[in-house]
Write a protein that binds this DNA or RNA. Structure first.
Lengths: 340, 340
DNA sequence: TGGCATTTTCAAAGCGCTTTGGCTTGGTTT
DNA sequence: AAACCAAGCCAAAGCGCTTTGAAAATGCCA
């Protein structure tokens, strides 16, 4: 059932039927009712390919997915997707994943933009002076960044959580508990989220006159194994930390395992705080010792990003506004006063 | 730069240019070279919307994503996606995720099929007599199932791992080690993979004359917490198990935590085997006691599925062939002879 | 050289929608 | 009564590609 047939059946022109369905004003309300009614009855749905060709609008949002034999997609992605999908569903928005060579995403972004495959894209895991953002800005393809870049000379729309504030708060708590040697097991420090977290902790330590030194910082992909290794190496230092701030629950698993291996107990010997993105399948309160966390639902972020993207697509939002969410500090049993 | 302009520039008809570019035989090789060359030089890329409208082919593969406030996307999905994306990239195939209400995927499948948004879809987490498979079969939309259904009266293309064989092997090993009370902590047992795994273990036990009784079976979503709870409840039984077979590493984390809580040691008190989908961020050899596993890379499956979907789209494959991969049993320190 | 089969090219008709510009109709103004 | 206007509708022209059916060019043979 296509427009032509429907128009024929109603003894109207395609123009009128199209307008009636799309809510244009120049059509009699009575006529519109007839059309809408007939459309529903015959289950008419405009062919998206045709509509897209005519309007240039795709009704889809895009994401360029870095791939490669040695590239692992972040497990957070799936949680983010839950939120995004949940909102997108209610608006009949589909999501297009365009796989790209991890070290050349630009080509794919250009292709996606040139093809007008999607109405907007979102960008995740930004780095300082992120090339993708500059590119999208230049290409004029609507976009939204999950996270923030730095050092760009133009404003761009984004949604981020207050990573610096979160780790500042967590650091401050530890400092207040008397800790001075606080280590940071961070994620990939070429990404801004990691930079902000380090900054937050540094600021908290500075208050008590302590400087966050390089040996106290580890940075690596968020795997259990990396958490383990970082912890082992930190505790081999001459002046080992008495507290650890860790950028993810997954790494947190490794941290706990390492401490256990070394016969150290949480929180008596070591205090531990981790960032929690709120996975349904791994919860900080279920760690051997309930884990204190900085918590922010990545799923909620996904939903909000979908909402804003939809707004941008329909023209309701068009300023490059940035939105930064506060992060909860949730204190549980894994922190205590510094040992003497 | 579109076809028309390119044709004009080359002083050829659109027909010829189109044919030259699409490899039709009825065009002079010399002409073709000219065309291909000019196309490359001017960076001409056919507009996919137009092509789609004309041919009905989309160049995309689809996936209907169940969503909802209380629906969690399986964390395995991301690993699967890595594999799929990796292959898809090399073939310029995009992936369309169409979010659906979790309890009414049918509507979305119908929409996707009617709109011809994608050339093929893949279906995951099938159940016995899966409605989606029957629907796709009936709609005539090419598809591939990751996993298997049961009780369908027609063949359909799928890729599965030998879940029954895997858990049979694992069960047999435990039986050989003298275990008789073996518990199963399974995933969602409305899904076929879980049914097959149970069947495998049952068969292994039967050999030694033991029947797998309901109290020895737990089934739940694959979270750390569910692994913990299942284990606690199993060990409160009058005749507690001496070995546990567990359907995922994530649940395995909970199992280990529960055993630790109870002061039981692996493998002295309890032997443990888990299924490993090969996550980069959580590896069985890094468990407190290295975990024995049945191992099968879900990522490899993703790549293979993309490959077969591509083949089906291009007509190279069109039989409803099923493909079942064997599963490795990897023995590590978590199994030992049954305690007396 | 004429006739015929092949090769190579083209004009035009879709694909199904949106949108421009114009045509009626009936009512309001001067 | 002529002149104007708004409301409601329509025909037709795109959007950029593929594909059909036919025409022109070429080669081959008798």
């Amino acid at each position: 059932m296509n427009l032509k047939q429907l128009a024929l059946m109603l003894d109207l022109s395609q123009t009128t039927v199209s307008r009636a369905l799309n809510g244009y004003p120049e059509v009699n309300e009575e006529t519109r009712r007839r059309v809408v009614d007939a459309a529903k009855r015959h289950g008419y749905r405009p062919n998206p390919s045709a509509r897209r060709l005519a309007t240039g609008k795709a009704g889809m949002i895009g994401y360029v997915l870095p791939t490669g034999a040695s590239v692992d997609i972040d497990p957070h992605f799936v949680e983010f997707l839950s939120g995004l999908g949940d909102y997108a569903r209610s608006h009949e928005l589909d999501l297009v994943l365009s796989p790209a060579e991890a070290d050349d995403e630009e080509t794919t972004y250009r292709r996606v933009a040139a093809n007008k495959q999607v109405d907007a894209v979102y960008v995740s895991a930004p780095r300082p002076k992120d090339r993708r953002i500059a590119l999208l800005h230049q290409l004029g393809l609507p976009f939204l960044v999950h996270g923030r870049s730095e050092g760009l000379d133009f404003p761009y729309p984004h949604l981020d959580i207050d990573n610096e504030g979160a780790f500042h708060e967590a650091g401050r708590l530890l400092v207040q508990l008397g800790h001075r040697r606080i280590a940071l097991i961070n994620g990939d420090d070429t990404q801004t989220f990691a930079i902000f977290r380090e900054r937050g902790l540094r600021r908290a330590l500075a208050v008590s006159g302590v400087e966050l030194m390089p040996p106290m910082i580890r940075s690596a992909g968020m795997t259990e194994e990396n958490g383990y290794r970082a912890t082992r190496s930190l505790l081999e230092l001459d002046v080992a930390p008495t507290a650890i701030l860790c950028s993810s629950l997954i790494m947190g698993l490794g941290v706990v395992r390492a401490l256990c291996d070394l016969g150290l107990s949480v929180p008596k010997d070591i205090s531990l705080v981790a960032h929690d993105d709120v996975f349904p399948w791994l919860r900080p309160e279920n760690f051997p010792v309930p884990l204190s966390t900085t918590r922010s639902s990545i799923r909620a972020a996904g939903a909000r990003i979908a909402e804003r993207l939809a707004a941008r697509i329909s023209g309701l939002e068009d300023d490059p506004r940035g939105e930064v969410w506060p992060v909860d500090l949730v204190v549980r049993g894994s922190v205590a006063g510094a040992p003497l």
